[in-house]
């Protein structure tokens, strides 16, 4: 194939390349401008949220929106710095208003979210990879049906799955425990992971397994010493998606936890609809800090995400 491409390309495109180089360049610029505009639209809500986390409360309700103002670090000092809310309110207003209490300190929630998302992602990879390998490699008469069944485990509405999980967990004494939440997150992410990973494995020629085994490796060794290296980018992509889905999960975590385990989305929901009014500043600060921590992670791995997905999941 590579050879064909080498012979085909010069004939078709070489004459144009020189003459239209500037134009092509211009088109790339045009596309870049367009994409900047699109990205701006997608990033705007987050940018606005980010700004809100530095806005004094009074500026949140203004129209037209205010983009330049003297930032306040009040919300962050409470959410990340653990400064008591009462103290902040005293400094801000000279008296206590609205709410009291130290429940806004949110670093533990973010840490809980990170712990749960990380461990459940590891588990997803650990359990899902061999399953995907088997699904890809071994002769199976009902392969499609097995795959469809795996997918179908994702179809139960979360609202309805919550109750049996709650009962099961109460019987096991797993309510409000890390392993309980981790396991649930693992299971809800397994279907996507297995199906994605299966298609990555499908990309790797079957001869490789055979070759390794001819060389004396067992099936198991062929899997973890040889084949797995060919799917690493795909594995990374799967892991990232699992991480994101676990990070975002709300309803199950809410149902299965009380006070000792609390993830970011659940904590955020308590800042809302309290009788004292929605605490936009704290919400924005919590949301932004949580987002930043994941975004740094994403920034490092995004290359793997597309590259990984490219290699298999989605190939025709």
């Amino acid at each position: 194939m590579a050879a064909e491409r080498l012979t085909a390309k010069p004939v078709a495109t070489t004459p144009k390349v020189d003459r239209l180089a500037w134009l092509r360049d211009g088109r790339t610029w045009l596309r870049t401008i367009l994409i900047v505009f699109i990205v701006f639209i997608f990033v705007f809500p987050i940018y606005f949220w980010f700004l809100a986390s530095f806005k004094p409360f009074g500026l949140i309700f203004t129209l037209p929106p205010v983009f330049f103002f003297e930032p306040t670090f009040t919300w962050y000092s409470v959410v990340l710095g653990g400064v008591p809310y009462n103290k902040v309110m005293l400094e801000l207003t000279g008296a206590l208003t609205s709410t009291g209490g130290g429940l806004y300190y949110s670093v533990p929630y973010i840490i809980d979210s990170i712990i749960i998302a990380t461990i459940s992602t590891l588990l997803v990879v650990l359990v899902g990879t061999p399953a995907a390998y088997a699904l890809s490699r071994f002769p199976m008469r009902r392969r499609h049906d097995v795959a469809f069944w795996i997918l179908s485990t994702r179809m139960m509405p979360v609202v309805v799955a919550a109750m049996p999980f709650f009962l099961m967990y109460r019987a096991l004494g797993w309510i409000d425990t890390y392993h309980g939440v981790v396991l649930v997150h693992t299971v809800i992410n397994l279907p996507l992971a297995i199906l994605l990973l299966k298609s990555f494995f499908d990309e790797v020629p079957f001869d490789l397994d055979e070759a390794a085994m001819v060389d004396g490796a067992t099936r198991w060794q062929a899997f973890y010493k040889v084949i797995i290296y060919y799917v690493l980018p795909g594995l990374a992509a799967t892991a990232i998606l699992s991480f994101i889905f676990s990070w975002n999960e709300f309803l199950l975590t809410l149902t299965l936890t009380r006070t000792s385990v609390r993830t970011m989305p659940v904590a955020a929901s308590t800042f809302d609809t309290a009788t004292g009014g929605t605490e936009w500043g704290f919400l924005a600060a919590l949301g932004t800090s949580a987002m930043v921590s994941v975004f740094i992670f994403v920034l490092f791995v995004q290359r793997h995400l597309v590259r990984g997905l490219t290699m298999g999941a989605v190939k025709g």
Binding site: F42, N248, S269, M291, F295, V298, Q302
Partner: peptide, 13 residues
């Protein structure tokens, strides 16, 4: 990377 930002924001938020 920037386009991934919406995905890492929990739906509740």
């Amino acid at each position: 990377s920037l386009l991934i930002l919406p995905m890492v924001t929990p739906p509740a938020v």
